[in-house]
Design a protein around this nucleic acid. Sequence first.
DNA 1: CAGGATCCAGCATGATACTG
DNA 2: CAGTATCATGCTGGATCCTG
Lengths: 117, 117
Amino acid sequence: MARYFIQNENPPKEKEEICPVTYTQNLTSGRWKLMILWYLSKGTKRFNELHRSLSGISKGILTRQLRELEEDEMVHREVYKEVPPKVEYSLTPKGVSFIPILDMMGEWGKKHLKSDQ
Amino acid sequence: MARYFIQNENPPKEKEEICPVTYTQNLTSGRWKLMILWYLSKGTKRFNELHRSLSGISKGILTRQLRELEEDEMVHREVYKEVPPKVEYSLTPKGVSFIPILDMMGEWGKKHLKSDQ
DNA sequence: CAGGATCCAGCATGATACTG
DNA sequence: CAGTATCATGCTGGATCCTG
């Protein structure tokens, strides 16, 4: 995540109010985060499933972005104590509540992709 | 803009289909882009107005992000041939159509900012 | 006023090798 | 399988100086 310092509204900032849009932006900035949320919106996935779905991402980066999403309570990580290891990722309620935004971004993108041709 | 290579859906990619979500992400990634769109959603603004509103941004970066938004047809740049120069920025129809997403991000952020406390 | 042109630092991502 | 660790690199944004 970019984790930019939080951008404040200006001039009515009192007591360092955080801009909600920037808050949202911060949670979802990171090259693969939206795609991760997108795939998880279709259901629980294991680590390697995600890794295969997001072709191009390296395992290290996938791990890190998942950890950040977990830290921000967007994603839940469930570890099964088995050998070989099994770890399942799913959306938290907070993550689920983000899906409508993802859908709108998809709709918007689809529309303007067409008219760009 | 990050201008990441376009992420494709996987496996049903045929003929290099572009993921609409990634398209949207690409157009709006950049530290200040969402805030720029946000301020412009309130009406036409001059360069220095924007610069003052977005406290912390340098003029060089503001120029660059505005140029990218212009290139992506999100923002319209109107130059008045006067001395001293006057340049006004406003949203294009495409930019305006993005506002609902911005609003949702704001609402979502506001909600989860609270419950984070 | 509204930039353009450089240069540079930091950090996010990528590549690769290794592990319980 | 699901990572961790390390190193390499490329971009993004910031700082600074200059201009019509």
